[in-house]
Design a protein around this nucleic acid. Sequence first.
RNA 1: GCGGCCGUGGUCUAGCCUGGACUAGGACGUGGGCUUUCCGAGCCCAAUACCCGGGUUCAAAUCCCGGCGGCCGCACCA
Length: 502
Amino acid sequence: MPEQLAESIVQLALRRGFFNPTAEIYRGPAGFYDLGPLGTLMKLNLINYWLDTFVRRETSYEVYLIDGSLILPFEALKASGHVDKFTDPKAECARCGRIHRLDQLIEEALGLKVEGKGIEELQEIVKVHGVRCPSCGGELTSFKEHHLMFKLSVGGGGETAFLRPETAQNIFLNFKRIAYAMRAKLPFAVAQVGKSFRNEISPRQSIIRLREFSQMEIEVFFSPIRGDGPSSFDEVGDTVLRILTREEQRRGDGGEAIELSARDAVEEGIVPNKFLAYYLAKEVRFFQSLGIPPENMRFRHLLPEETPHYSGGNFDLEVKFSFGWKEIVGNAYRRDYDLTVHSKHSGEDLSIDDNGVRVVPHVVEPSFGVERILYAILEHSYREGVRDWPLLMLPRIVSPIKAAIFPLLDRDDLVAKAWEIYTRLRSSRLPIYTVYDERGSIGRRYARADEAGVNLCVTIDHQTLQDNTVTVRDRDTAAQVRVRIDELEELIFNDAYRGLEQ
RNA sequence: GCGGCCGUGGUCUAGCCUGGACUAGGACGUGGGCUUUCCGAGCCCAAUACCCGGGUUCAAAUCCCGGCGGCCGCACCA
């Protein structure tokens, strides 16, 4: 059954224009997807809702929004550690054909630390020490590096640069400029929405693992010595977090998530600080408002071997998909790592004055994967068996089409009236995207609208011509109400915010 | 990247093993027409497909090779 859901979603996405493989007509390389008309609207709505929630309406501190370059120079990514960390040295066994990570192999066999060493050096070590295939003892050949970053050559001199592997680096690189330009005081945050690129070895699962993907990220900068938290922490402190602890993960069965409030999670030392816990709580609320039930969410505390040495704790927000639990938000406590390494490599002082004390701020980073979230929403909205046709019960705020306008019959007077109402709504200053449809029976049009997740269907009938009222049908209940035409605009707008927190 | 299975209109598929009668069939959807007073109604008409390249053959959707893509497993995945 579960795989069938994923299949149904992909079919629907293709059929209705949510997403499709890039350069489909050429069978382009895997890991690239284009968003279609409906997918694009949905993405924009999601981003706007996210910006509203995490940037514009944030009252604990200022959140500055930036838009950085996708291409970053070699030096910046060398400093951040990506050049070394995002390269996997590999070798193949001549006898059994298995492929091994060279660095892991050498560390296991010889106990040598080889982080950051080039492929030639590693090859030399293998030769000198006679390291062989751990599976069959065969000889190692075909040494090569796999770059997880897309390498570019910039300008006439051919300077090396990369497509950014995460949006975060732009924020650290701009830290000093932003802090000065905005006269920022700790704590403050910088947010960014944009594309990132990772040259995955074998991307799969439609838009879940992409080589080019969109991130919505925030870096919160705070004093490492004050030990405070967001001023509005108490507003979300009671939110229940489901945490899959490290102890639970080490159990054979995969473990059970424990439940406790965000406040208790900090007090019991499970989550390292209030800034991180604040975001975990806000994320739960955010995704709940997007129709993902709490029992389908959990925060997995990454194991030490999964996190970089500087990490003060990473908590992945995982959502239960039809094919298993999958990360949709990464929450990292990066301490002062990034600012420190960039300060060291660039020679710039990236400390900041905090009430008379120079400090290098610590950083908490929630990083949202846009396409994964879109997919999660689609899976959680898809219903079969409610109607005689598939129904997409999308969160009203992100659904691409807020209302569809139908003349009940394909009859001149009704069509003219419907078109008049449609053009009026289309000209609205409110963000209410509407469509018009007169083809086929009214039932067929309701079905089409349901499948595209259209929030409301407005039908113009004989009575409209008499008293200027129309019927408005709700997607989720199929219930109809009669409303005056001059109330429509606001009704459609307000309906999109139905059920959201104030 | 390795192994297994797979690739036919927009979607799902029949045909492939056993090459020729395939001018590639069906369902749903789509466009047009008629009809139709609120939940995929009906009738008529139409358009749209053998993933790409090479090979075998008198003849390839069908057999072989390569590429690309998909699914599953392994590996990989801040």
